[in-house]
């Protein structure tokens, strides 16, 4: 039994009187893709904020590669190999695409991680994402779809072990979503990353991941392989509803 790359133990996040994340566990290994679904307000993004060190859990522990990072600031998580994207792309508007990617390499990605097949050069990352032809454009000038790719590129530039994707496919066309799913698989297969993927488009997500975690009102409602979770009456009741029944006949 090896230590998981990322482990969350009974993570609780509170905002004032509201418990946004309530005792959630999660293990992510290298070379796996885990999906997180749940209705709006289920605590998905807040859980990501805890996993990336942006909020400190009220209780519970976070381990990265076996090391306890609970309560450490976000840059420590980044250096330990946790990379993330944001729901609304937060690219550096005034930097070029290439400069934005270089940023990650200059900070969290600076330390060599020779044991992992990470991309260590700006052109390699841009090629991997198919962004090479946008390299010299200011980040604010590229299309929203490309900004989402750039977000992933900035995250990959930290040479991570775990990639947290927060609704990277939201608002994209069906063809673009398929491309993102392929990209996620390449992150797993070619770079050996563990990927945690939050997505609203449940159908796409269930097809793309090996394991899925369902959050509801901050709690873990179900976890397992997609086909089993999709049939779970609790899940259907709480979240999937009619729309999902159509999506997964």
């Amino acid at each position: 039994m090896t230590t998981p790359a990322l482990a969350a133990r009974s993570v609780v996040v509170r905002f004032g009187g509201l418990t946004a994340v309530d005792g959630v566990d999660l293990d992510v290994d290298d070379r796996t893709v885990v999906g997180i679904i749940g209705p709006n307000g289920a605590g998905k993004t807040t859980f990501f904020n805890a996993l990336s060190g942006l909020v400190t859990p009220a209780s519970g522990r976070l381990f990265v590669g076996g090391a306890d990072l609970t309560g450490k600031p976000a840059h420590v998580f980044a250096r330990a190999g946790i990379a993330r994207t944001f729901q609304t792309p937060r690219v550096f508007a005034d930097m070029t695409v290439a400069e934005s990617v270089r940023f990650g390499l200059e900070f969290a990605g600076r330390r060599r991680r020779a044991e992992r097949a990470s991309l260590a050069e700006v052109p390699a990352i841009l090629d991997f994402l198919g962004l090479a032809d946008s390299a010299a454009l200011p980040a604010r000038a590229v299309t929203p779809a490309r900004q989402r790719l750039l977000e992933i590129g900035m995250a990959l530039a930290t040479r991570p072990r775990i990639l947290l994707l927060d609704e990277v496919a939201a608002g994209l066309t069906h063809a673009e979503v398929e491309k993102v799913a392929r990209l996620v698989h390449r992150c797993r297969d070619e770079l050996g990353l563990g990927v945690v993927w939050i997505e609203h488009a449940v159908a796409v997500l269930l097809d793309a991941v090996e394991r899925v975690l369902v959050l509801h009102q901050g709690r873990k409602l179900a976890e397992g392989i997609p086909s089993a979770v999709a049939r779970d009456p609790l899940v259907i009741e709480a979240y999937l509803g009619d729309g999902a029944a159509e999506a997964r006949p």
Binding site: G53, L54, P73, H75, A78, R90, F103, G104, F107
Partner: peptide
């Protein structure tokens, strides 16, 4: 440009 983003990219 974006302080939180910079921090998640490893800036102390």
């Amino acid at each position: 440009a974006d302080e939180q983003r910079a921090q998640t990219l490893g800036v102390p």
